[in-house]
Design a protein around this nucleic acid. Structure first.
Lengths: 165, 165
DNA sequence: CGGAATGATGCGATACGTTTGCAGCAAGGA
DNA sequence: TCCTTGCTGCAAACGTATCGCATCATTCCG
């Protein structure tokens, strides 16, 4: 349960496809389920369960947080939805898609930089060289500083050193 | 608060040094504080705040979990203690030390593989090549499968494919 | 189209890890 | 030894996530 299962992603690009996938699986298409799908489609980026329950900040119908979590889990098992944990805070959920579905999470500004999984192959290779460890960045992404924040921090480091807590 | 500060580590190897460091900083040496230090020294590996509060499973005096957290934070600011989050579950705390203080966390068996920070330089370089992103593995380590678990999973994948949920 | 079966909902309770408020205590200086 | 104030212990609250359960509504089937 703590480990993301090795399941095959199911890519959908609109609500109709998503609904078809749900129906095809034998699951019922309920309004709560549909709302989760609609929110994920509308957001087009990783969002939290609470974002969905809140109706994306009031722009959509609200729903019960417990049902949202249950549906995210169900849709995850179906292969329609993925989620990951980027540092502190709630998990982030996204619809499965083709390309960019791994992330670099900036711990300073909170930005999520989407990258294609294959672009991290070299990184995984480097880790594997150490001891045969197989790094997996899909459920716990790489955390650090995006280029902007790294630059800011570097140029500020002279001053910061003076009043470091 | 969500970002680990860039502070200089203070390495101590025994209780006396730890106590001296606390005293030298102007902080009071209370019994609760001492207990945290003793537990970290006794454990010799990353442990949770609850482990400390429980007296390492009854082998030491118990203490209040809130005070443990407060002291871990205080000792962290002092540079004596670090902590990180390896996947799900509570944060793990360790005394600062010289060598191995970054980790590879196996999401299958829970093992923590300690590595020297410099051995991850190549990994950080590979990430930087992508977009200038500066990966930091000290607060959110690399998660994946240790060599053993990766091997088990590989040899089991033929069978697993049959009854995949 | 109506009725039965059961998957799904909504709500509250619960869990877990962590933080905070606060009254009282005790470490360390005078 | 007393005083100051940092620190404690306890309880409560927090954010994220899960679960129990009675009720509801989707889907199937006739």
């Amino acid at each position: 349960m703590t480990v993301s299962p090795d399941r095959q992603p199911v890519v959908v690009t609109d609500l109709k496809e998503a609904i078809d996938a749900v129906r095809a699986s034998g699951l019922r298409l309920t309004s709560a389920r549909r709302l989760v799908l609609e929110a994920l489609l509308a957001a087009r980026k990783p969002i939290s369960a609470e974002d969905i329950a809140d109706g994306l900040g009031g722009t959509m119908t609200e729903s019960d947080i417990a049902s949202v979590y249950r549906n995210l889990e169900t849709l995850g098992e179906l292969g329609l939805v993925r989620h990951f944990h980027a540092g502190h805070g709630p998990g982030r959920y996204v619809l499965e898609d083709f390309g960019e579905h791994e992330y670099l999470a900036c711990e300073s500004c909170g930005a999520l930089e989407a990258v294609e999984p294959s672009s991290l192959d070299g990184v995984r290779d480097k880790v594997r060289e150490l001891s045969g460890f197989e790094a997996r960045f899909s459920h716990f992404p790489i955390v650090g500083l995006c280029a902007d924040c790294a630059k800011k921090r570097k140029s500020a480091s002279g001053r910061a050193a003076a009043h470091r807590h």
